[in-house]
Design a protein around this nucleic acid. Structure first.
Lengths: 143, 143
DNA sequence: TCAATTAGTACGATAATCTGACTAATATTG
DNA sequence: CAATATTAGTCAGATTATCGTACTAATTGA
């Protein structure tokens, strides 16, 4: 597992850098939220997202996702509404209380990405985005 | 936290794809090892690595790293030898028992990366490596 | 030498995560 | 259309991962 992880380690480092900054910003904005909760919350779409989809995108089991969503709910950051298209399902949506956190996290990520762009140059940055987007086709069990 | 994570989500997906394949291969090779344990084990250098360094590279606290190393030790995959350069420190090294797992994980990662290269083309793959390597300068608190 | 730093451990508390088993709603299909 | 299979989510229980605080021992530095 040693040297071969190379690319994996590189992605791990970059990914964590982004995630940590987003989480830190959310906490500093007064958010009572853990990293794992934030990771799930970040996948909630503007019109709400089903639990199963959140689980798939976060790459955890439904039970884990449900647990994290429960805590987000207890903290007041999400609500559950019945899915009009499927009586079994419920859409999880961010509440108004989550807005400041989302805003802070977004700003922190944007700021960090600007630093990246400054370091890499616009061209490399675009290439990075392009390569990762293409990779998604073959690595994302969800999209 | 929604749309801005974009690049972060992309890296998350690709990173997890690699990590999961490595872990899966290690388990299928008979390894009694969890994902978190494997993540730490993957950072152990050929001549052994100090606990503090493992913690920094895995981005967890010393206590967490120590806990995972303890379990790896209990399973027989690592040993601790005193660091000749520092009486306080001990080097954590992989044992012979870990070798089949390392081999299997390496092979799985190499295979996956070959798929990536096939999908992206050699040039994009190199650009990806280059960009991530450069990013490390500004995102890795360790290296 | 003695204070400050550094490597690691001990203990206890949470948080995250999984497996297995279950209910209810929806789809499929003969 | 009724029986069956699938899908969304929940419940319960166990294990693992992770952190904070506090500590010991070795090293460094003034």
């Amino acid at each position: 597992m040693t040297e071969s992880v190379n690319l994996g380690v590189l992605m791990f480092v970059a990914y964590r850098a982004l995630e940590q900054r987003a989480h830190k910003a959310a906490v500093e904005a007064g958010g009572n939220i853990t990293a794992a909760q934030a990771r799930v919350a970040a996948r909630i779409g503007p019109d709400g997202t089903r639990l199963t989809d959140l689980a798939a995108q976060s790459q955890v089991t439904k039970q884990t996702a449900a647990h994290l969503v429960n805590e987000l709910h207890r903290a007041g950051y999400v609500e559950r509404v019945t899915d009009p298209e499927d009586g079994r399902a419920r859409l999880i949506r961010l509440t108004a209380a989550a807005e400041p956190l989302v805003h802070a996290a977004n700003a922190a990520v944007a700021k960090e990405l600007a630093v990246w762009r400054g370091h890499l140059g616009a061209t490399r940055m675009e290439h990075l985005q392009e390569a990762l987007t293409m990779l998604r086709d073959i690595t994302d069990p969800w999209a």
